[in-house]
């Protein structure tokens, strides 16, 4: 087990997590969701985190995304040491460096697709005109060029997830965090979404981390981290031909 975070700009790591613990609740309701987790994700890879319900996958994802505070340990995301940052600095970091794709898409139903996609740019202070122009371009890249002025409710599930992907990519973040991105989609649509995400992960200086329960998409992973009971149990390499157990 690694005990220190190395300089990830040199070793090609996008994310390094060391000995992170996280506890929810107090007294009898106290639950330790993460029990000293060590975790790595590399630049240019699509990494999946898998495991049974309640094993700590989503908690780990939230910690990496900087959306959840943790008690102990160190988290390094593309040179940024989250464990030493203030809350507002983490918020700024998230806005500029992380893209999010959620299980339920979380598109704002009263806004058009272009407006939804432009949100991360607006949060980063980009003007409305430029943000909407860029949003339209990215929507075209994900195959929804003609649907920019539609509301999400007029789109299919797969199309909505494409809008969500466009929103995650529009501000060109280094890390894309995906929470169950295909669980609300059928197999074919799910595969198309994963192909899109794999292409995103291949871009230089990027990394895509996917939390999933969906075995239909395992084949798209470059590596797979298996969690159980708040710990990383094993990491599998070599996707397409089946996973090989490497180390914990």
């Amino acid at each position: 087990m690694n005990t220190e975070i190395t300089n990830n700009s040199k070793n090609g790591f996008a994310v390094q997590v060391r000995n992170v613990t996280k506890t929810f609740g107090t007294g009898e309701a106290r639950t330790q969701a993460l029990k000293g987790v060590d975790f790595d994700a590399r630049e240019g890879e699509l990494l999946m985190i898998v495991g049974p319900s309640g094993c700590g996958k989503t908690t780990l994802l939230s910690v990496i995304a900087g959306t959840l505070e943790f008690e102990e340990g160190e988290v390094d995301v593309f040179h940024a040491r989250l464990h030493g940052m203030s809350k507002s600095a983490i918020t700024n970091f998230r806005g500029g460096s992380i893209g999010f794709i959620f299980q339920q898409f979380n598109l704002i139903p009263t806004l058009t697709c272009i407006e939804n996609v432009s949100v991360p740019l607006l949060i980063n202070g980009v003007s409305r005109a430029i943000a909407e122009k860029k949003a339209a371009e990215v929507l075209a890249l994900v195959g929804l060029g003609g649907r920019g002025h539609d509301r999400p409710s007029n789109l299919s599930g797969g199309q909505q997830q494409r809008v969500a992907i466009a929103r995650a990519l529009v501000h060109e973040p280094k890390l894309i965090i995906c929470d169950e991105p295909t669980s609300a989609l059928d197999k074919d649509t799910g595969h198309k979404i994963m192909e899109l995400l794999r292409d995103v992960a291949r871009a230089p200086g990027r990394c895509v981390i996917v939390v999933t329960h969906d075995p239909r998409i395992y084949q798209f992973a470059d590596r797979m981290t298996e969690m159980e009971d708040g710990r990383v149990q094993r990491v599998h390499e070599a996707p397409q031909a089946g996973f090989s157990h490497t180390h914990q």
């Binding site: 959306t67 918020t91 970091f93 998230r94 806005g95 949060i123």
Partner: peptide
């Protein structure tokens, strides 16, 4: 609003 917060809205 949670999604906006996650995406970096202060």
């Amino acid at each position: 609003i949670g999604a906006l917060k996650a995406m970096g809205a202060s």
